[in-house]
Write a protein that binds this DNA or RNA. Structure first.
Length: 270
DNA sequence: ATGCCGTATGATATACGA
């Protein structure tokens, strides 16, 4: 298969959003679908629905109520042994390897709570520690030619035009300078390329999340780019297109995140 | 910035999201 479509979506409960996932898959037909915040244990996961959607291959890692990630694929893969990030088994990461050797990492980075101070907020400390561990992990595995895709809800909007108002959000968790620094360290740890910004460079605003609290998300458009797709340099020549499928935000009882789709043309990949 | 908005839970208030 020379074309590959990868999608990532924080669904905010896979069971509450099952009909939306089905609509999205019908419309966009990703070959590989990475989900975050599935909020369900593995034995309760609606696997049959995903089989009906055409996904023969899957990896799921969930828990009750919180977090949870899943990968569905039309292409066979092997699943990597789970990694204990920050010494916790809190179902925030899954990694798979395709037969071509390409690795796909699906992350749900901790949100970090409300207070942007590690002394006052353990959740914020956890978020920064999680990103530090990610940076170290990927730095150790860096090579010149590895083919890796990192996707997920990284819960940081790094650039000024990744949020609706840079100045107003400087102290708001997701856009604070210390989070942006930690994300930059992650980004540099592996020579990553930001596939979304590859197609839509700054200063064009780019958002993947809109709060539930706005009366009219389109009218207020107070969005943030919390969801990301990064690729290693070996995959950069194969990037073909990117789309934030934000029309899903208009559906009834939507996720507050929109799916992000990236298309690859893998012709000639070594 | 704050929202009174959403999901989940042996739930009818509370934790968490960001």
């Amino acid at each position: 298969m020379s074309h590959l479509r990868v999608a990532t979506w924080n669904v905010n409960s896979v069971r509450a959003r099952l009909a939306h996932v089905e609509t999205f898959v019908e419309q966009s037909q990703p070959d590989i679908l990475c989900l975050q915040e599935t909020k369900v244990t593995d034995n309760e996961f609606p696997l049959k629905s995903f089989a009906k959607m055409g996904y023969e291959h899957y990896a799921i890692a969930g828990q009750k109520s919180y977090n949870g990630v899943a990968i569905f694929s039309k292409i066979p893969f092997v699943t990597t042994e789970p990694i204990q990030w920050c010494g916790k088994d809190d179902k925030r990461h899954l990694a798979i390897t395709l037969e071509t050797g390409m690795e796909i990492h699906n992350f749900y980075v901790p949100a970090g709570g409300d207070i942007a101070d590690v002394a006052l907020n353990d959740k914020f400390a956890h978020k920064l520690d999680f990103m530090t561990e990610m940076a170290d992990w990927f730095a150790e595995r860096r090579t010149d030619d590895n083919k890796m895709i990192l996707v997920g809800d990284l819960n940081v909007a790094p650039f000024e035009t990744d949020v609706w108002n840079h100045k107003q959000l400087l102290k708001v968790v997701s856009h604070t300078p210390i989070e942006v620094e930690h994300m930059a360290r992650m980004y540099e740890s592996h020579g990553w390329i930001d596939a979304m910004r590859h197609f839509v460079p700054e200063p064009e605003p780019l958002f993947s999340w809109w709060s539930y609290r706005a009366r009219d998300w389109r009218a207020s458009n107070r969005g943030r780019r919390l969801d990301h797709v990064w690729v290693t340099p070996a995959l950069k020549p194969h990037l073909k297109a990117m789309e934030i499928a934000f029309t899903s935000r208009d559906w009834e009882k939507p996720s507050d995140h929109a799916p992000v789709i990236v298309d690859f043309d893998l012709t000639g990949m070594r």
